[in-house]
Amino acid sequence: MTEVELSETLAAARARLAAALRDAGRDEHAAQLLAVSKTKPASMIREAYRHGQRDFGENYLQEALHKQAELADLTDIVWHFIGPLQSNKTRFVAECFDWVHSIDRKKIAQRLSEQRPAHLPALNVCLQVNVSGEASKSGATFEQLDALASAVVDMPRLALRGLMAIPAPATTLAEQRMPLARLRQALETLREHYPQAPLDTLSMGMSDDLEAAVAEGATLVRLGTAIFGARQ
């Protein structure tokens, strides 16, 4: 993808998000774009940065660490870890990322809190919910959510910001909105139970269901292929 093409795809993604926010009757700044840059080179991230993009999502730790080293001069990039997280990788994520979207069990959260360096702000975290009940997907169940939130909210080096989900594909807007509505309602319930937490984030919506996610209150929309082209 050329520099011109990347600037065009990024502009198109922003326009699509803006249109979805208008159609949903929401403020133009109510949701922001998270550019999913997994499998893409640091040079493409640098180019997107040059066009104003600051938040980038990575799934694979080693790949992300190489990119972070190459882009260390871009000091205001916000790095989001959005992939499944194993116990043996939590230290690097705690040290090198600003957000983690994929916490689905207490053990991972505890390790992140213990390993977050004291000189850094609290690590922003979302709890991943398996909204469609798919065996192949990571995430806590809705029934497990309150207990997980209760544990995470008291961890001193974490800031519990919200929920994340990757729903099963659906063909109609109404079908897409159903699991996302459940996630929104779950966040509203957590806000009532844990008013001390900054629960302001719904990380949901990708290329196929952006409009449904925005209609249900998404605040972070994760787009990869739509910005960077097909994955390697």
Rank of each mutant, 00 (worst) to 15 (best):
E70Q: 15
V129Q: 06
M164R: 06
L220G: 01
A212Y: 01
V129G: 10
A72F: 07
M164E: 12
Y194C: 06
W99H: 14
L187W: 01
P121A: 10
P41S: 14
N130Y: 00
V131M: 10
A218T: 08
A168M: 08
R46D: 11
L220E: 07
I103F: 05
R177F: 01
L180H: 03
I108P: 00
A11G: 11
S207D: 12
L199I: 04
L199Y: 05
A230H: 10
A18Q: 11
E70F: 10
M178V: 15
V93R: 01
R182N: 15
A109C: 10
S43W: 06
K38M: 03
V153K: 07
L199F: 09
M178G: 09
D200I: 05
R26V: 02
L160G: 00
Q53L: 03
A11C: 11
Y194F: 13
Y194S: 04
A12W: 06
A122Q: 15
A149E: 06
R177S: 03
A48Q: 02
D208A: 15
L61M: 05
H193M: 13
P179D: 06
L210S: 03
W79Q: 08
D209E: 13
E216K: 00
N130L: 03
Y49S: 03
S37N: 02
I227D: 04
A64F: 04
E58K: 00
Q53G: 04
L71E: 04
M44R: 10
E3H: 12
L17T: 00
P117S: 07
Q232C: 14
S150I: 09
P167Y: 04
S87C: 12
P195L: 01
L17G: 05
I45V: 15
K38Q: 00
P117K: 04
C96L: 14
F228L: 09
Y194D: 05
Q86K: 07
K137C: 11
R54P: 11
Q68G: 01
A181N: 07
T141Y: 04
G25T: 09
R105L: 08
F81P: 12
H29A: 14
K38V: 05
S102V: 01
L160T: 01
L210G: 04
M1K: 11
N88M: 07
G133L: 06
R54M: 06
T141P: 07
Q176C: 08
E216Y: 00
Q68N: 05
I108E: 00
N130P: 01
E28W: 12
G57E: 07
A15R: 14
Q176Y: 01
F228S: 03
T172H: 12
A24W: 10
R191Y: 08
E188I: 08
A212D: 01
G57V: 10
G83K: 06
P198L: 08
L158C: 08
H51Y: 10
G52I: 00
L123Q: 07
S7G: 14
A12N: 14
N59V: 02
M155W: 05
A159Q: 10
R54E: 09
T172L: 12
E63M: 06
T189M: 12
T172W: 12
Q32F: 13
D146V: 13
R182L: 15
S203P: 09
T189S: 14
L187E: 02
N59T: 00
S138P: 11
T2C: 10
